[in-house]
Design a protein around this nucleic acid. Structure first.
Lengths: 131, 131
DNA sequence: ATAATATACAACCAAATGGTTGTATATGAA
DNA sequence: TTCATATACAACCATTTGGTTGTATATTAT
């Protein structure tokens, strides 16, 4: 329901996991369709072990899950965590928009001496995103 | 307009920059109101140089900008890039939702032998997010 | 001119990251 | 049992990262 049950280090892990093109591609792939680790590995110009590590990073971040199926490990995408991050960024956006409104209202932006909250359009504060 | 004018390494930089709690906090702060580097540094339990480095990482990722104002460097948040990332994650979400629809349609998910696109609800494909 | 403030930047260090190769284990097929 | 496949995992290496301290430069105040 609420987004902010994530600890800092959990969020660190999520963003960190997405900070690599190979891993983003893996997420994209397994969101489209599940794939075994070796199937994934075929696609990239690096060792199997390297891909294995990437998957491990994604798994540790909770972005994908693995499940045994015969002698393969099937990797699948985890929407929930992706949704979490997206909401977090929505929060950033909301903050910015809120501020843009304030600037339009007050019509000055002196950096250090910026106006305190003083919501002219009161109650519009977009603090924390819920679902 | 279109989101995908970002190179892989640019996206790497953005996610990488957000993969640190201090830096996320800085972004949050400067989205609320601009602040000089030293003003930011006061808030964190680390050296000025460390905070300076964090700001540099954010700047390199395009998430914040700096502008001289007297003897201070004023840091401010950059919405555009944040919007970019958010859209990128929206794309991931869209892919997932699309797939969820397919699963609901086809009612099987054999991992390797998954059904090819075959959009029963044709034209609903949520490929690339535009603005 | 001198001092204080705000920043820049270099050098250094420990730990994490992204890659490699090599070896071991588990499962399925013959 | 034996062989091939899929994965796990350890050891190693170069580079990056997040922090430190120290020094230099630019701007404002006295």
């Amino acid at each position: 329901m609420v987004v902010y049950e994530l600890t800092d280090s959990e969020v660190d892990a999520m963003f960190g996991a997405l900070a690599d093109a190979t891993r983003r591609d893996i997420v994209d792939r397994v969101l489209h369709e599940n794939a075994s680790v070796s199937r994934l590995a075929e696609r990239y110009d690096m060792s199997f072990a390297a891909v294995q590590k990437h998957v491990a990073v994604l798994q540790a971040a909770g972005l994908v899950t693995k499940s045994r199926q015969g002698r393969e490990q099937i990797v699948s995408g985890n929407l929930v965590s992706i949704h979490h991050i997206q909401k977090l960024l929505s929060h950033f956006e909301a903050v910015w928009k809120q501020r843009a409104l304030q600037m339009a209202d007050v019509l000055r932006d002196d950096a250090t001496t910026e106006a305190p909250p003083s919501p002219t359009s009161s109650g519009t504060r977009a603090d924390i995103p819920h679902d």
